[in-house]
Nucleic acid binder design. Structure first.
Lengths: 335, 335
DNA sequence: CTTTAGCACTCTTCTTATTTCAGTGCTAAT
DNA sequence: ATTAGCACTGAAATAAGAAGAGTGCTAAAG
């Protein structure tokens, strides 16, 4: 890979990102001061290495996933934030009355708007949350709400309709007991400790212990399986991208963007550093026909992942620039 | 409209619902024991009345919106629930451990699955909710969660990052004050009373009254504009319907199904009885190319609307049957 | 050894024409 | 009131052709 080959690949990737049309040899002559034949020779070589692909034998070249990856890792220039983009985001962060998490939400909205990509903010997994408090709010003699709050600030609630004659005082008493005994417990261990530590106690003291036990059990169980900790912006924006402008692709993507089991895959397992991470096509577990760029942040005391979902020929520079800019703004807030 | 004309219209509507293909005169001969010419005469008459339409001059007929409406109001037989449908729903309601609202959610999932329509459960408007309780949960010296709960069992929460040195005790004190003074207030009047009744008091007693006041103000304000009270199932199922099987329709619908300002229109203003209501095409405010069938229910003490969104040639009988069946099951529970 | 002009070849896309077919409206006869 | 018959319409499918962008390869030039 001599310098010209690098430049050529860079040029091809960047024009393809802009035009979405296979790049032919003629169009590149002027930029490289040589004939189309020379370009074709180089292209053939890049294709042999697996960086370029053809749709059919006589079409122009498009970057392969490997090509994008090489581009991102070796060729892409240090991202510089587009002035217009920055301006729009600045006005949001400038508003200091806004809670950080709200500012982020608004940001993602803007980003989806100006880029036509879909963006997701994923909160920390319920595993990393410990019980902070459970409150029982009574609505009537047969209706209550159980509200569970974790140390990361997640709140889940569930309304219960009780059997006529259930003793609310007993219910509240058990609530207090849970608060005294179980605060600090990881959310997904609460069920177990409820069974082992709370049940034996209330079995003796509480008449309708089974009904009441089930309420607490349900309240926590819903929490673990809940998905309230995901915020998506511009879910349909990605459909503006030409690669998805056909019925089958749209359906496929729309379905995945609805399905929590897919959304959860956006946050991968091997996730232990602070850099912007780029997952191109097959590299990501969400969908092999998209690229996901993501980064983690500390937002209002909680570790969150922001991910941008776009086509494989996503505007990498721009998105990396934006994500790093957000980082800076968050740091400013922290001071 | 003599009997034959009625039967003809009914037949046309029902075959079109099944086949999604314009209905020609020949296909109906055998059913009516007459020639296609006779059918054509009758069809021409029904078209003149506005019940039928043609795609082009020599195509078969499809029902117009007026035609569907006439069908629904005059021709459709008393809905009878399909046995298979009932069976699937029965098993859900049979599980008495399930809270009613959860059963409903599961139901909607099933309904979307078996019909390929989208379904929505809309909770009551925030206007109808009164403050039941606000809790302040402290997470750290600079982080708190404000949790607002209404008498209908809605819960909203918001995490706040406080300025270093904010007095948490004072914050909690104001929380108590709000609970003492404002419980029972309609949610959308809370802001006003906060300003008029709470602010003057804390202005005297609390040092950082402005910061603290803003927290409460924000917590309630978010509540009013929130949309957590909507649950949608099978958002993408409707795309299986052939009428939306093209890129433009899909985009249009997908956008509307994302947009709260459209979703809210599903629950109309003139909404004061218990019957199943059917809004065909232009009749509904959500989208002129769909039909919305909806009904209101009392679910866990709250009035909720269930709406099914499908094409104009929706299977009216089936959906009306299902919605009425749900009603019966809810009543059973109430006993 | 690298570059390039030239040319045959491939494949897509667009346009146009042709055919087929389902279905209609109208007329005149039953 | 019904129906057979027929001309007519428009959609959909198929085919054929032309244009165009782009390639690979060869042989000559630098």
């Amino acid at each position: 890979m001599d310098e010209r080959k690098n430049n050529l690949l860079k040029e091809i990737v960047e024009t393809y990102i802009k035009t979405v049309k296979p790049v032919g040899s003629k169009a590149l002559c002027s930029k490289f001061n040589c004939s189309s034949a020379t370009i074709r020779n180089e292209m053939a070589y890049l294709e042999e290495l697996g960086y370029l692909e053809k749709n059919h034998i006589s079409s122009g070249r498009i970057p392969s996933e490997k090509g994008y990856k090489y581009y991102v890792e070796n060729l892409m220039e240090a991202e510089k934030l587009n002035g217009k983009d920055m301006l729009k985001l600045q006005t949001i962060f400038a508003n200091n009355d806004l809670q950080l998490s709200d500012a982020i939400t608004q940001c993602m909205e803007i980003i989806s708007d100006i880029t036509n990509y879909t963006s997701v903010v994923l909160g920390s997994n319920s595993k990393d949350n410990n019980l902070r408090q459970i409150s029982i709010v009574t609505l009537s003699s047969t209706q209550i709400v159980a509200i569970v709050c974790t140390d990361k600030g997640h709140v889940e609630n569930k309304t219960f309709t009780l059997k006529e004659g259930t003793d609310l005082k007993e219910l509240l008493k058990v609530g207090d007991l849970v608060n005294r005994k179980l605060v600090g417990t990881p959310i997904d261990e609460v069920s177990e400790r409820l069974e082992l530590e709370i049940k034996p106690i209330i079995k003796k003291q509480i008449r309708q212990y089974e009904t009441i036990y089930n309420i607490f059990y349900d309240a926590f169980n819903d929490f673990v399986s809940s998905n309230s900790n995901v915020h998506m912006s511009g879910r349909t924006k990605i459909f503006e991208q030409p690669e998805y402008n056909n019925v089958d692709e749209m359906k496929r993507l729309a379905n995945k963007l609805e399905d929590m089991s897919f959304i959860k895959r956006i946050e991968a397992n091997d996730y232990n550093d602070d850099e912007v991470k780029i997952y191109i096509g097959e590299e990501n577990e969400f969908d092999s026909n998209v690229t996901i760029i993501r980064k983690k942040y500390m937002i209002d005391g909680e570790e969150k992942t922001i991910a941008i979902i776009g086509p494989k020929r996503m505007d990498y520079q721009r998105i990396v620039g934006i994500l790093n800019y957000i980082d800076k703004e968050i740091e400013k807030r922290g001071e």
